[in-house]
């Protein structure tokens, strides 16, 4: 993965560590940003403008769900405080079919990955966003 900035949003630090390690081993020139809480993550996304290549978003966050984060981003695009929403990869420990179906309903979501995050997953995502 080159010249990309990647955002990881997950309330589980171990999960963040795994994801970051795998991404880092796959591509040395990417810069990952990590947030455990949703609000600062949303602010960061909006501040980044178009520099973010992809977002890895967990569904079960501390004070809200990943879906609510996407909804909030949409609101902010609407009121002009956010320029655009980068591609989102839902990375979750949930194996509920309902979550997978819901993910399909969001056009921003380009991929749905059930944890654990594996190097193959990383390849798939890079392929989807057209990197490497």
């Amino acid at each position: 993965m080159n010249c990309g900035e990647i955002l990881l949003v997950d309330d589980d630090p171990i999960s963040l560590f795994i994801t970051e390690t795998i991404i880092a081993s796959a591509a040395s020139d990417v810069c990952t940003h990590q947030y455990e809480d949703a609000s600062p993550a949303v602010d960061f996304i909006c501040a980044c403008e178009e520099n973010l290549t992809v977002i890895f978003l967990d569904i079960n966050l501390k004070d809200r769900t990943g879906w609510e984060v996407i909804d909030e981003l949409r609101e902010r695009v609407k009121d002009g405080t956010c320029k655009h929403i980068p591609p989102i990869v839902v990375l979750t420990s949930s194996i509920a079919l309902s979550d997978k179906k819901k993910a399909e309903q969001y056009e921003e979501v380009i991929h749905f990955i059930s944890k654990p995050f594996k190097p193959e997953h990383c390849q798939e995502v890079m392929h989807k966003i057209g990197l490497k």
């Binding site: 171990i14 999960s15 390690t21 420990s93 509920a96 944890k115 654990p116 995050f117 594996k118």
Partner: peptide
Amino acid sequence: SHNLRAPISNLNGLTSLAKV
């Protein structure tokens, strides 16, 4: 699905990290 599975998937992920 979350509280049980999250740590196990971490465990799973971490094991594979060793090779990575």
